[in-house]
Amino acid sequence: MPHFNDLSQHLFGKPLAELGEIERRILTRAKERRTVATDTNAEFSAELSVGDRLADSIARVGGSWAFILSFCGFLVVWVVVNTILLMTGAFDPYPFIFLNLLLSMLAALQAPVIMMSQNRQAERDRFAAAKDYEVNLKSEVELISLHHKVDDVLLREIAELRADLATLNRQLAQYRHIPDNE
């Protein structure tokens, strides 16, 4: 197996000292014939904290049609109940100040949680893009390596054919110099 510096020069066209971290990792995997892990979701999710998972769950629920429809139902019930009870002492009479307070508090809490989840999704996308780059780079390295192997085989076969042709030419020359006894 060639030395790392030889492999680096052969595959990347530059010495090992000039390779980046990803290129070195790919070179090591290529030399050891290991694959690049491609389950980016599991790999990324393993690093999430409990708060990160909770924020993602809240954003997933808060951004669903089930939440929107159920919250609309809650608002309708709130308004209807307080309008009917208006005559007998509603707990939040029109203009529904307590409901406005609850909605403001919900929005104040929900917005940063959704933003945290969106930021994490952007991080996940960058992480997946980096993994895709590694897989593509490893594939390119393997293709270059295969091209070199095919080229070596072809050059060896051409050399053998030339040697066979030279042998045939010598035999033909000898055959032509043999006197005909007939």
Rank of each mutant, 00 (worst) to 15 (best):
M1G: 15
P2Q: 14
F4M: 14
K14N: 03
P15E: 06
A17F: 08
E23K: 03
R24H: 13
I26H: 01
L27I: 08
T28H: 06
R29C: 09
A30T: 11
E32S: 13
T35W: 07
T35Y: 12
A42C: 02
G51Y: 04
L54C: 10
A55I: 03
A55K: 07
A59T: 03
R60M: 14
V61I: 15
G62R: 00
G63M: 01
S64A: 04
W65A: 13
A66F: 07
A66L: 11
F71W: 07
F71V: 00
C72E: 05
L75K: 07
V77M: 11
V79P: 06
N82V: 06
T83H: 10
M87K: 11
G89A: 01
G89F: 03
F96A: 08
I97F: 12
I97K: 13
F98T: 10
L99F: 13
L101Y: 10
L101R: 08
L101S: 10
L102E: 10
L102K: 14
L106W: 03
L106S: 05
L106T: 07
Q110H: 09
A111R: 09
A111Y: 12
P112I: 05
I114D: 07
M115E: 15
S117C: 04
S117L: 04
E123N: 12
D125R: 11
A128S: 14
A129T: 13
K131C: 12
K131M: 13
D132P: 03
N136F: 10
L137R: 02
V141E: 01
I144G: 06
S145F: 11
S145A: 11
H147T: 13
H148P: 00
K149Q: 13
D151P: 00
D151Y: 09
D152M: 08
E157Y: 03
I158P: 00
L161K: 06
R162F: 01
A163F: 04
L165N: 15
A166P: 00
N169F: 08
N169T: 12
R176T: 09
H177N: 15
P179Y: 03
P179V: 02
N181R: 09
